[in-house]
C-alpha cells in the first residue's frame, strides 16, 4: 500500500431492522491499490459499498474517501468517485452515448470523450440504438465506462464481471488494471476468487458482516495455505499420483526416492487457493 490513504473505514456498522449487515469493520485502501472485497451473497459486501459511496449512512463509525467525510461532504466526494453496481442501472431507452453524456453532465464534465470511453471497454462507438438492444456483457461494459466518465480517483466496482462472457470479463479486467496503473484506487467486491487473486493487491474476506481476514493473496496463502508437490510417476504398469507436503518432515527424502526409483511423468507445486482459505476461515463456500 502506498502512503496516501484514499479509502478509510473506521469501525463502520449498519443493520437492517436490527439484523447487522455490517458489524463494525475497519480497513484502509491506498492510492493505486486494488482491494478485493470477498464474501458470499449476503455477507455485507454491497451494504459496505453503499456506505462507502454515500448511499447509506453508517449507523456507527466513520468513512473518509480522499480525506473527506462521506456523510458530511457527500457531493464533494461523489464528484471524484466512479461507481459500477452489480445490477444493470442504465437508461435503456437511450443510446450508450446518450447515457454517458447524461452522466457526464451530472459531474459537470462538459466535453466527455464518449468514443474514447466506449472504445476502452470494447463497445462500438457508432451505435446509436437503444441500450435495451445490448447484450448483458455490453451493458456491463457500458456501466464500467459510465463509472469512468468523470476520471475518478477512486473506483467502486460491485461484482463487475459476474455472469459475463469471457470477452466482456477480460475487457473489464483490463480496464481495472489500466486504472490501477494510473494511480486510481479500486474497491472491488466479488465472489470470484480467481478474479480477486488476479486483480487485487490485497483481499478482505467478509463473512456475516465481519472481516475474517485482510492481507495480500500471497500472505494469506502463505499463512493459511498448505503447499504441496504433486507428482505423477509410473510404477511398473501402474500410473501413480502422490501429494508431498513441502514443509513436512521427510519431504525432501521422499521426493528423492521417487526420482530415483520411478519414472516421473510430471511434477508441480500446488498452492492453496483463496477459496480454500476462505472455507478454512469461515467454514463456508463462496457461492
Amino acid at each position: 500500500m502506498e502512503s496516501e490513504i484514499r479509502i478509510s473505514a473506521e469501525n463502520i456498522a449498519y443493520s437492517y431492522d436490527g439484523r447487522p449487515a455490517v458489524d463494525h469493520i475497519s480497513f484502509q485502501v491506498g492510492k493505486g491499490e486494488v482491494l478485493g472485497f470477498l464474501g458470499p451473497n449476503g455477507a455485507g459486501k454491497t451494504t459496505t459499498l453503499k456506505m462507502l459511496v454515500g448511499l447509506l449512512v453508517p449507523q456507527d463509525g466513520r468513512i473518509t474517501i480522499l480525506g473527506r467525510d462521506i456523510v458530511k461532504e457527500r457531493a464533494a466526494v461523489q464528484a471524484q468517485i466512479g461507481v459500477c453496481f452489480e445490477e444493470k442501472s442504465l437508461y435503456e431507452d437511450m443510446s450508450a452515448a446518450a447515457n454517458l453524456k447524461f452522466f457526464a453532465s451530472l459531474f459537470g464534465v462538459r466535453d466527455p470523450d464518449i468514443p474514447g470511453l466506449l472504445g476502452r471497454v470494447g463497445l462500438p462507438v457508432d451505435r446509436k440504438d437503444r441500450v435495451s438492444n445490448y447484450s448483458k456483457g455490453m451493458k456491463q461494459r457500458l456501466m464500467v465506462a459510465r463509472a469512468l466518465v468523470n476520471n475518478p480517483k477512486v473506483l467502486f466496482l460491485d461484482e463487475p464481471t459476474d455472469g459475463l462472457d469471457p470477452v466482456s470479463s477480460e475487457a473489464i479486467r483490463e480496464v481495472i488494471l489500466e486504472e490501477k496503473e494510473k494511480g486510481v484506487t479500486v474497491f472491488l467486491t466479488t465472489h470470484d476468487m480467481m478474479e480477486a487473486d488476479k486483480l487485487s493487491d490485497r483481499v478482505a474476506f467478509i463473512n456475516e458482516g465481519r472481516i475474517a481476514a485482510l492481507d495480500t493473496p500471497d500472505n494469506l496463502k502463505h499463512e493459511y495455505g498448505k503447499r504441496i508437490l504433486k507428482v505423477r510417476y509410473r510404477d511398473g504398469d501402474l500410473l501413480r499420483e502422490e501429494e508431498i507436503p513441502l514443509e513436512g518432515e521427510g519431504s525432501g527424502r521422499r521426493i528423492q526416492e521417487i526420482l530415483r526409483e520411478y519414472m516421473v511423468l510430471d511434477m508441480h507445486t500446488e498452492e492453496a487457493t483463496l477459496e480454500d482459505i476462505f472455507i478454512l476461515l469461515t467454514g463456508k463456500k463462496l457461492e
Binding site: 461523489q78 468517485i81 461507481v83
Partner: peptide, 14 residues
Amino acid sequence: QRRTAQAVLVTPVS
C-alpha cells in the same frame, strides 16, 4: 425499478 435513481445518486446529485 431500473436502479437508475441509485446510479444518479452516487454522482454529486443530491
